[in-house]
Structure formats: C-alpha cells, structure tokens
Design a protein around this nucleic acid. Structure first.
Lengths: 170, 170
DNA sequence: GATTGATGGTTCCATAATGCAACCTGCTAT
DNA sequence: ATAGCAGGTTGCATTATGGAACCATCAATC
C-alpha cells in the first residue's frame, strides 16, 4: 500500500518527512549541495536505480526543493538545483553531520565543511536563538502553537506537561 | 527488493539516514521525545500498523537510539525510552521544526518548544560553533576528513572545490 | 468463575515501492 | 556509419507497507 502521508499533520516534523522521510531524497539533496546537478552523475554517485532517481527528482521538483533547469537545447538537457526551500532543507542535512560524526563513526569525521569566503572550517551546532545556548532535547517540552487544532481534548492529551505547567488554558 | 543500506558509507548524512531515513522512525522518536513511551499509545497517536511499529521499535533498539525498559512483571510490560544517542538524534527532529514552520505551513507554527527550567520559549537555530553565525548552506563547501577513503581519484572527483582552493593535497 | 479490558505483540493478505537490467531518443564526435 | 553521451522509460522479481484479525498474560469487575 501507499505509504501514509501526513501533509496535513499539525507537525513540522511530520511534514518535513514528506521531503526527507525516505532514504534517497536527502541523499539527492546532498548531491546538489555538494555540486552534483546532473542525472547521470547522481545515478553513478548514489548507485540509485534510474527509474527511482527519476521519480524522486520529479517529487522533489514538485515539492519545490529542487528546480529543473534546462542548460542546453538540441538535445534538451537538464540540471537540478536547490531552490531557497531546498537550501533551507539542506540545513537539516548539515545538522546530521555532527550527529553522524559523534555517534556513527569509530574514527574521525569523513567529511568536513568549509566556508566559501573565509575557507575556515565550519562546525554546525543547534542553539537557542535567544540565549545562544546549545539545545538539549531533554530540556524541552512541547506545547500547542497557533496553528494547532483547537480541539481541547487532543491538546490536553497531547501536551500534558504544557498544561500542567500553565494551568488549563496556557 | 530491500532498500540499499550504506552503513559503511563515508558520510554522516548517509549513515544518519539508517536511523532517520524512513517515514516512521523519526515519528517514533518524536513520540518518545514528547513523552509517549508505550506501544499502544504510539500506535494510536501515529496510526501506524502494529506489525510495522514492532519492526521499527526493534530496529531502533538495535541501533541504540531507543532502550526497551521493563516497567512491570506479571505480565511483563515494556516502555521505550530515548538513549543518549537517541537524544542526539532528536536534535535533528528539533531542527526540522523551524524549517517546517517557515516552509510547510501557511499559518503560524503548530507546536512550540519550551524550556523545562525557565518555561521560556525555545527557538532552535543552526549556527557555526566558532563564530556563532547562522549557517547558510550556500556558503559551504565540503572537503575530505580524516576518515574519508584515501583513494585520490575518488577524493578529487568528489571534492572538486576543495582541491581547487587548496591545490592538489590540502 | 466468567467476562471484560489493558498491554504488547504476531500472523496473514493485497497492494505499493524498490533494485536491476534492458531499451529508447536526440544529438555530437570520429 | 558507428559509437558515445545525456536523460530518461519499461518490465520484472523481490520487499515493505497498511490493515485487520488474532493471541497471551494478567487485573479488575459482574
């Protein structure tokens, strides 16, 4: 059966997974980020089936993270480039790198990121925008935002800690 | 056919995708992060098939991101909790939230994160550890790190910009 | 003491997605 | 005329998914 889609889910994580929630799509974005823009190159680098690559590219274009650019006529040839939305999604890939380095490799990092202007090494960290402090997921609890369905039962069930801390209607 | 696995890939992104590279696994981690630890609760919240939930939980435990904790005998009952590795992976989920808010919702955010100690709202941003500046993926280029396979051809092919900037052996 | 309910699964089936190989098309270079 | 490149499409065998039904263990209820 077709995989479930939660494009309508009131959750940024669920919706993000429509773009990144499979094995290949993030790797395709990675290729674009690293400078690989053409069908055959991607296919070779990734070892992905050509039919699947076709489908994924179409999906990613449809979702607006990739742009299909014609770079010659006769014969028409195309390249795939990240859009603004695509670059925003690429941050999620960038965020995977320190995680991978710390938890998935015995040895040192396989790949390093550098800044195009300064040529200095870049080390991505997730911090709180206000305080600048690194984020520790244990330290967090979720609460409903403006776009969360107003059904009170759902909210209470879903965000117990939030309502405990704020009283019935925080 | 079984999906390809690149556990051996010299890429943090590819390896991370062994944990996060499908639709359900990240959502299961999300449930744990939000305080849902039991089989039936997860099944109901996610609307996932019970057989699939079983498989995913087993995988996540095997990969060390979840821990299966017995919370009673007679009958034996179990809960699933994030490990240290799991909390590290949860940062990636947290990183999805600002992306989703900005690009996947017309309206305002559906869910907000708060700090358990201060009860203040937390807004996650990805920054460079040294400079504290927000990371812009356009600004980055990748180069081989210590654990990248030493095969020179592969390195040159893969990291063109890196070698251009540094000369043959940077 | 029989039944209901909670919890945490397993089994079976139809459908969808994946991986692989082969093939097609338009044009260029030899 | 022939081979090669780029970007696909088509067909097929194998897996994974979603859904529903079923099972087992114990506690509490009628």
């Amino acid at each position: 059966m077709e995989r479930k889609r939660f494009t309508a889910a009131p959750c940024s994580i669920a919706r993000s997974l429509d773009i990144l929630g499979d094995w290949w799509s993030p790797l395709i974005l990675r290729e674009c980020l690293y400078g690989t823009h053409r069908f055959d190159q991607m296919q070779r680098w990734l070892g992905i089936g050509r039919n699947i690559l076709t489908r994924r590219l179409a999906l990613l274009v449809e979702q607006g993270v990739l742009e299909r650019r014609q770079y010659q006529d006769r014969p028409p040839r195309f390249e795939y480039h990240l859009t603004d939305k695509g670059y925003a999604a690429a941050k999620l890939l960038v965020a995977m790198m320190p995680f991978g380095e710390e938890w998935l490799f015995e040895e040192d990092e396989p790949i390093r990121l550098y800044d195009r202007e300064t040529d200095r090494r870049v080390r991505p960290v997730l911090v709180d925008a206000e305080t600048g402090e690194p984020i520790d997921p244990r330290q967090l609890y979720p609460g409903p935002g403006p776009a969360f369905p107003a059904d009170t039962d759902v909210r209470r069930e879903r965000f117990v800690e939030y309502f405990e801390r704020r009283g019935e209607e925080g």
